[in-house]
Amino acid sequence: MLELKNISFDVDADGQNKEIVRGVDLVIPDEKLVVVTGPNGGGKSTLARLIMGIEKPTSGRIYLNGEDITDASITERAKKGIGFAFQTPVRFKGLQVLDLIRIAAGKRLSPASACEYLAAVGLCAKDYIDREVNSSLSGGELKRIEIATVLARGSVLSVFDEPEAGIDLWSFQNLIHVFERMREEISGSSILIISHQERILNIADEVIVLKDGRIAEQGDREKILPDLIGTASAVRDCRVLEMPERSGQTC
């Protein structure tokens, strides 16, 4: 179980204090799949980065299974079982897909076992296992490899930041299956997905709407989702095809 208590995050933007996350109280219960949605710039990625320890909160505390991890480093949180798939995955010159999956798994996986994680995200494993994680990979391929690294970690809490962005419709079906399977095998873990996709929201146990750095709505899917359908916070699959790869903020 992950608990955020009164988490705020401010930055200094052009000499002005900007509040990006404002007093968020949040619980990700054990064995639940929680989906966070909300408008662009609402603070979703920032919240995920705070959970992973990439950003440190200005105030508030974070607890993992009762233990205060607010001051724990990224590495320590990873070792305690938090996994994170970036919204914009990082590229590496020279490192191969196999290297990355082995690092993620924390052991020298055989190429065959590493391939299973690629197959799970719909990549034809033999075509990718030796590829460099560099700019020769398309955005969608990179995104799927990113998800595979989180699968390989087998985390206690897996956080996915807009896993569907840049992924084509066919692979999107596949991705839904990946999350459905994770949902079935959730025993002993929990999942946090940031997404605007109705089909991902549909498999959530709980839905959170984050707006202007605050939790605007929060509750069981059955309660929250009906009001979201048709808004930008719950778009239908076909939009995935048009979704451009975003960099930075949208106004």
Binding site: M52, I54, S73, I74, T75, A78, K79, I82, G83, F84, F86, P89, V90, F92, L100, I103, A104, G106, T149, R153
Partner: peptide, 10 residues
């Protein structure tokens, strides 16, 4: 790049 590998436990 360093952050990504740290999230993988390094």
């Amino acid at each position: 790049q360093i952050i990504k590998l740290m999230t993988l436990g390094l």
